[in-house]
Write a protein that binds this DNA or RNA. Structure first.
Lengths: 176, 176
DNA sequence: ATTATCGGTCAACATGACTGACATAGTTTT
DNA sequence: AAAACTATGTCAGTCATGTTGACCGATAAT
């Protein structure tokens, strides 16, 4: 599909002509816009479902990551979400009050509160994740595995180093 | 690099074995997380610069799209941002008060207010866009043009149909 | 002349972020 | 055992950014 020579990591080796193929200002602005619109459209369906239940995107994130890693501690959740404990507390307390999440005391360190989804929480998590998985499944199968690979590579390169380390740790089957 | 048969649009034709290669739940959750973290890290640097100037991400969006399309109308901006005119008004008024943006009356339709960046606005827009372009330029040159192509294909497939139409219109050089 | 559109404004409200100070329980260090 | 540190929670106040609903003036379209 594309048969031009690829610039390699040493940017000095690629001619300005090669660079122009995908490093021009216009092409980079296209990337910015694509990411903005894709993120907006991607979250829209889930946001709608959440607002029916008087929940917001912040609740979604908590439910998602607790479902992703049952027994996660509050500290670990804070590190993932990059928000303050006061912000998390409001959302988390509400989810506990409404019986989406339960806490249990850490068996080794009794200060910790290990978080788990209830059946109600797991059911909602599944609905929300299904919506987003379906969108990706459509995109992935429309475009094929080479596109998927490129997509994951570029997004991985956009990450901060510490985020990349975190993701490598929680997706051990993947290289990158 | 990848030599398996790709599942095509008709999902019935791909075996569960093929699907397992990139449509498994775990792989799709990886996509969700990658998008979440990439968006978060991608916006971080610009957010920092903005907060030094007592501006927020909403101001950034307005400045970006006015810089992208000088003379854009308020209506068009509303359609792009998917927010209410009251929300836009607060942000836009502030940007006009602080001399980042000027309005001029539409020459054909005098009801319209055509928006332009001032020198001050253009200077800020350049700084912000440079930050984000640099991040993409690094990712793009690290991973090469095939990855870029895949990245753009998948993001394009994630969009709602009307967003895709809009992007096609404003990036006429691109196929997709 | 009527109606519709573009843009702006006032008021009230919700969400989800922030800072700073402080509290309580439990763990670790000295 | 005492002191220091850590995990978590809470109170109080603030800010940014979104929402709804009502209404207005200027202008354009019918």
């Amino acid at each position: 599909m594309t048969d031009i020579v690829l610039p390699q990591k040493q940017s000095g080796t690629s001619s300005s002509r090669e660079k122009g193929l995908f490093l021009r200002r216009q092409e980079l602005r296209r990337a910015i816009e694509l990411l903005f619109f894709a993120y907006r459209d991607f979250t829209y369906e889930a946001d709608e479902l959440l607002s029916d239940l008087d929940l917001g995107r912040a609740h979604h994130r908590v439910i998602y990551f607790v479902g992703r890693q049952p027994g996660i501690t509050v500290s670990d959740l804070l590190a993932i979400l990059h928000i303050t404990k006061q912000s998390l507390s409001r959302v988390l307390s509400h989810l506990i009050d409404e019986n989406y999440i339960i806490q249990e005391t850490g068996p080794r360190d009794r200060r910790q509160r290990l978080l788990h989804l209830t059946d109600k929480g797991a059911s909602l998590e599944k609905k929300l994740t299904d919506l987003q998985c379906n969108r990706f499944a459509r995109a992935y199968s429309d475009r094929g595995i080479d596109a998927v690979d490129g997509f994951q590579q570029i997004l991985t390169s956009l990450l901060d180093d510490d985020t990349r380390s975190h993701l490598r740790a929680v997706h051990p089957d993947r290289i990158d």
